[in-house]
Nucleic acid binder design. Sequence first.
DNA 1: GGGCCCGCAGGG
DNA 2: CCCTGCGGGCCC
Length: 341
Amino acid sequence: MPSAYEKQKAANIERNRQLLASLELDSATTDLFKNKPQKPKPTPKPKPKKAAPKKRKEPPAGGDEGPDTKAQCVEAPADPEAGGVRRSARNAGKSVDYKAEQNKSIKTIISFDHGRKSKNSGELGKDNGEPKYPKRYGAIPGVEVGTWWQGRTGCRADSIHAPLVAGISGNAEEGAYSIALSGGYEDDVDLGEAFTYTGSGGRDLRGTKDKPKNLRTAPQSSDQTFDNHFNAALKRSCDNKRPVRVIRGFKLHSPFAPAEGYRYDGLYIVEKAWREKGLNAHGFLVCKFALKRMPGQPPLPVRSDDDESDSEDEEHSDGVADAEKENEAVDEDEEENTDSA
DNA sequence: GGGCCCGCAGGG
DNA sequence: CCCTGCGGGCCC
C-alpha cells in the first residue's frame, strides 16, 4: 500500500509526464524523439556486461600507476601529480584513499559508448578551473556532447555549468546558461529527450538566526516564485527560446543518469514554465519547467545495468546503448597535461 | 545509511 | 557587501 507521499509523487509524475507528451505532439521536431522509445526492436540483447572490473585491484596510488595494461585505459585517468589528495583542500595531509573511487570512474567511462572524459576531472577549480567562457549561451567550443566529469568543478572548468552547488546558472535578463539535473526533486520526470525540472527557492537554508544551520539544501518551507533569480532566468529562457546546456548527475533517478559523476547532454529549449503543487509535506508551490532537447545531437546513453526509474512500462529500449554503431571511440585524446604549473 | 557543516561562485 | 544554492566531505 503506497503511502500518501508515494501517491502524491505518482500523481505529480503522471502530471509531468502528460505535459511532456503534449510537448512532443505540438512540436515539429519529434523525429529524433520518436526514434527512441517504442521501438519494438526484438533484439535479444547480447547482454554486454563489460566484464565489470573488480574494484579491489587498486594500484598503488602513491606515485606510479604502472599497471595500465588494460583495454580500459580509454584515457589517462591517473593524473601524475595527484599524489593521494585530489578534490578537497581540506583533505590536504590526510590519508584519504580515492583509489577505489578512481577505479569506479574508469568503469563508468567505458560503460557508455560515445562519451568522452574531459581532462578537467575537477581538482580544486582554482588554479586550473577558470572557465574559458564564463557567460556564454549554447554550445561551448571544444566540449562535445557526452563529455563526462567526476564532479561539478570539472563542469565549471569547461564552462559547461559554472556554479558548484546551484542547479541553475544564468540571469533574469538573458535567460539561463545551463542547468544541472541531480535528482533534487523526485517528482521531476526525465524522458531523456525531454524532462521536467523544478526551480529553486522556498527552502529555509539558514535555520534559525540564533542557530544558523547554513545548509545548502533543506526541505521546502514556502512557495517558490519566479522572483527567484534562477527561476526567473529559466522563465526568460522559455520566452526567448535560447538553448540551455544540460548536465545530468549521478544522483538523478533516471535511466539517463550517469552511474557516476556528471555528463553534458547537450542543448535543450525551455518549452514551458509554470507552477504547481510540489512534492513536499505541506504542498508548497514549486516552479516547474519543461525542457525539450534540440534535434541533431548525439543520442543519450542509457543505463543498462540498473534502472530504478519509475517502473511501469519502460522497457527502456535496452539495446540502445550498445546498438549505437557510431560509438567509435576510445578517445585517446588527452594530450597528457596542458596545465603547466 | 543519515545529519550536519564547509568553502565556493555568482548575482543583487 | 549581502544573499543564495540539485556539492561534497566528514562524522555519527
